[in-house]
Simulated scan of single mutants.
Amino acid sequence: MRLRTVLAALALTVAAAIAPALAVQPGEMLGDPALEARARTLSAELRCMVCQNQSIDDSDAELAHDLRVLVRERLAAGDTDVQVLDFVVARYGEFVLLKPRFSTRNALLWGTPVLLLLVGGVFAFASARSRRRTETKLSDEEQAALSRILGEAER
């Protein structure tokens, strides 16, 4: 019984490790191993527009297949890795990149939450300071009444 469980877990682990490799069909692969390695590296950097949480290298979607073929065609035509990525980004937009490039728009996107936290912290600090300043002292009558109430509460 225990051996079956271990073998089943091992089979599932092997299947999970092999499954992404099965997304690339043998007919898509390039004859040159160096070009194929570059294509696999580039495919791992590009998002499947259908699945959106997978690279085109891992996806079985038809659009991912088309993008894998496009990457391989561009590499076979002599494009550099940067030229291939630029071509795909020009065609599909920057969303196709799993790791977006740094730009002013991205900096604003990532910097806004930090900026909002800083502004909120400054506002909270200023608010606390102004509250401390506006605290009023008790008048002599109020102080006497408070002392009398606290004195009665102690008894």
Rank of each mutant, 00 (worst) to 15 (best):
A64V: 02
V50I: 12
R40I: 06
D79A: 11
A61C: 09
N53I: 08
V88I: 15
C51H: 11
D58M: 11
R47P: 00
V84K: 03
E36G: 02
E94G: 06
P100Y: 05
A61G: 00
A90K: 15
L63A: 11
D79C: 05
D57I: 02
L67A: 00
L63Q: 13
R72K: 09
L46K: 06
K99V: 14
D60A: 11
E94M: 11
A90D: 15
K99G: 02
Y92G: 00
V69N: 02
S59I: 08
A39R: 02
A44S: 13
A34V: 14
E45T: 08
A39C: 03
F87V: 03
A39S: 09
M49R: 15
D66V: 12
T80F: 01
R91G: 01
Q52T: 15
D32C: 09
A77Y: 05
R47A: 06
P33S: 07
A76N: 08
L30C: 03
A90M: 08
L85R: 09
V50W: 13
V89H: 10
L67F: 01
E28P: 01
D58G: 02
F102M: 05
Q25H: 11
Q83A: 10
V69F: 04
F102Y: 11
G27N: 09
G31W: 10
D58T: 12
E45K: 14
D86Q: 09
E73P: 00
K99Q: 12
D60C: 08
V89E: 13
P26T: 12
C51T: 06
L35H: 13
R72N: 05
G27T: 13
V71W: 01
L46A: 04
A44Y: 10
T41Q: 13
R91V: 06
E28Q: 12
E45C: 09
A37N: 11
A77F: 05
S43H: 03
P26L: 07
C48E: 07
V82M: 01
G27R: 11
D58W: 08
V88Q: 05
A34F: 10
D79W: 04
N53K: 15
Y92W: 10
C51L: 04
V84D: 02
A61F: 10
D57R: 15
G78W: 07
A77H: 05
S55Q: 08
H65Q: 14
P33Q: 11
V69A: 04
G93M: 06
T41P: 00
R47D: 05
L75T: 03
L67G: 00
I56D: 02
R101V: 08
L85Y: 04
T41H: 10
L98S: 05
A77V: 05
D57G: 07
V50G: 01
L75G: 00
Q52M: 14
K99R: 12
F87K: 06
Q83E: 06
E36C: 01
L85M: 04
V96I: 09
M29H: 13
Q52W: 14
Q52F: 14
N53P: 00
L70A: 08
D81T: 02
F95T: 13
E62T: 10
L75H: 02
R101M: 03
E94W: 11
Y92P: 00
H65V: 15
L85Q: 03
D32A: 11
E28L: 06
D79G: 02
L75V: 03
H65W: 14
R74F: 08
H65L: 14
P26H: 13
S59M: 10
S43P: 00
R101K: 06
V82H: 03
